[in-house]
Design a protein around this nucleic acid. Structure first.
Lengths: 122, 122
DNA sequence: CTGCATCCTACGGGATACTG
DNA sequence: CAGTATCCCGTAGGATGCAG
């Protein structure tokens, strides 16, 4: 399988792998099951309501999560991963695993790179 | 393995999975081996020089690619994947594969979602 | 050929206030 | 409780011109 092709296609495909700041955080939060809006909000630290709403909306739109609203007072909305969402979760885990394994190496590489103040003729 | 934890930690980890617009495009371009600057540029479509430079610099800094400059006239610079870069390439392939498999499904989900103009009480 | 410097615009995303 | 509306700002990133 080769990715290289028309740049438009490449860009298009790669768009899928440039999630917004909070998308994958939501995905991993829903790992253990159903969650409500403010429940997510609390568990995700300082995420603004606007960002969370937008993220949830887009995830629902793309079919990664479901949204179930109950017409009670007070209102109550539950979010869940779909099958597709669980696949995305698997990918997120892969990335996280990768990041965990190589965090030190990358930090070290950065320090080395930054230490070379004599970087001539770029 | 659980991702959930302090939000700061989660954010930090997830930073690694929010590459810039061109990072993964470069990575997949280097799949087949060494490439020069303008060679990359041509194969990547309309990428501005600035963006490509920045991307290459950061990838080098983090240890994903190597940069070899030859002091010839005209100058010549070659880029290559490191071992770490190849691991990143593997992840990129996973994402691409995922995107390929589910492109239709996501498009369909979007159409369905957008078709519901009666979405009350969000 | 391989970059850097500059300018400019669009957009993500945070803070705050308000609503059903 | 679960959002929307508005404002504001930093930064990504595109276009252009210049340099070694």
């Amino acid at each position: 399988m080769s990715i290289s092709g028309a740049e438009a296609e490449a860009s298009h495909e790669l768009l899928v792998i440039r999630p917004s700041k909070w998308t994958l955080v939501v995905i991993v939060q829903l790992r253990s099951g159903t969650m409500r809006f403010n429940e997510l909000r609390r568990n995700m630290g300082g995420v603004p309501q606007k960002s969370l709403s937008q993220t949830l909306r887009e995830l629902e739109r793309d079919g990664y999560i479901t949204r179930t609203a109950y017409a009670t007072i007070p209102p109550r909305v539950e979010y869940d991963l779909t099958e597709l969402g669980r696949e995305l979760l698997a990918l997120a885990d892969d990335w996280h695993s990768f990041a965990q394994r190589n965090r030190r190496a990358v930090e070290q590489a950065r320090r080395l790179f930054d230490a070379v103040d004599e970087r001539p003729a770029y």
